[in-house]
């Protein structure tokens, strides 16, 4: 199937992506996730300095037909929030991996990174759900 899964990042079973840069990372939702949700109309983001455990809900996205919680892939503290997205939620549909990152985090437990999927595993995982 045609969903993009860039090699330069890691993925979760709940369709978030993580792009690591040392101790910090960018988080967003994947091409597959935005396609499933269709036209995204709203996004609710956390605030800077909020802390989350792995799998905590840190954001909510809404499309016309669905609403989805976005889970934190690793234990983290928020260091930056992409506030542009709140005004332009359609960016999540247009460029899920580029302009549409949700938050920048400080990774609190590096060992949890190992549990994430690489691009090819995630691509297979998407395919397995599309039949």
């Amino acid at each position: 199937m045609p969903w993009k899964t860039p090699e330069d990042r890691l993925y979760t079973k709940t369709d978030e992506w993580v792009m690591l840069d040392g101790q910090s990372a960018l988080i967003g939702i994947t091409d597959y996730a935005q396609d499933q949700l269709s036209d995204i109309v709203y996004l609710e983001l956390p605030t800077i300095d909020e802390s989350f455990s792995k799998d905590d809900i840190f954001a909510t996205v809404e499309s016309v037909k669905a609403a989805a919680d976005v889970n934190m892939p690793v234990m983290a503290k928020i260091t930056e929030v992409n506030n542009d997205l709140e005004d332009q939620p359609e960016l999540i549909n247009l460029e899920p991996y580029e302009g549409a990152w949700f938050v920048k985090i400080d990774v609190q437990d590096v060992s949890q990174v190992e549990e994430l999927m690489d691009a090819s595993t995630y691509a297979d995982y998407c395919d397995s759900r599309s039949s």
Binding site: Y42, E62, S63, V64, K65, A66, A67, D69
Partner: peptide, 13 residues
Amino acid sequence: TLTPREQHIRRDK
């Protein structure tokens, strides 16, 4: 509008 907030989509959430 804003129906995704509602029970028929969000169910227990």
